[in-house]
Design a protein around this nucleic acid. Structure first.
Length: 152
DNA sequence: GCCAACGTTGGC
DNA sequence: GCCAACGTTGGC
């Protein structure tokens, strides 16, 4: 059992979108970074906890809680020649990118990036480090606990 | 829109 | 395998 922070642009998929979808579950597709892919492929397990983070928006921050509800599977968007996630080097036989399904468990108040930076227990969070851009980052159990407490 | 930081590409 | 050029991310 591990914990993760996953970034999503609310213009694309917000916590509201996730909570409104069937079974509150949505496929996480479009990851095009190897490090993030490898986390999904090699480490994520069904039941892992997810901090749902809104990025590239007026108020970036954690907007909800979610969990991993599927094993990794081939990301269909890599084969869509007209889509923005198309990868000409990916083949059906050798897919390069994967998806997993994420289930929203709770929309929370917004724990803004600015507030997160004031919390000593979150100081070491990867997402708060200078230059951190990864869309999926591991969260320690202590960090998870601290965030959940702040969101109650 | 700016720009720092980081990732990827491709020539050599 | 090096590294310059280019592209992307994402906060501000």
């Amino acid at each position: 059992m591990q914990y993760w922070l996953m970034k999503s642009e609310p213009d694309e998929v917000s916590i509201d979108d996730v909570m409104a979808s069937k079974d509150q579950t949505t496929p996480w597709f479009g990851v095009r970074n190897y490090q993030a892919r490898n986390f999904m492929r090699d480490q994520m397990q069904v039941g892992d906890g997810v901090l749902f983070y809104h990025s590239s928006c007026p108020e970036p921050g954690i907007a909800g809680l979610a969990e991993i509800v599927s094993a990794p599977y081939s990301d269909a968007s890599q084969f869509d020649a007209k889509g923005k996630y198309y990868d000409p080097k990916a083949t059906q036989e050798q897919p390069r990118w994967i998806s997993i399904d994420v289930k929203g468990t709770q929309k929370t108040r917004l724990l803004s990036l600015a507030e997160m930076r004031t919390i000593p227990a979150l100081e070491e969070m990867t997402v708060l480090q200078k230059g951190s851009r990864l869309s999926i980052t591991p969260v320690t159990p202590a960090q998870w606990k601290a965030v959940v407490k702040l969101l109650k």
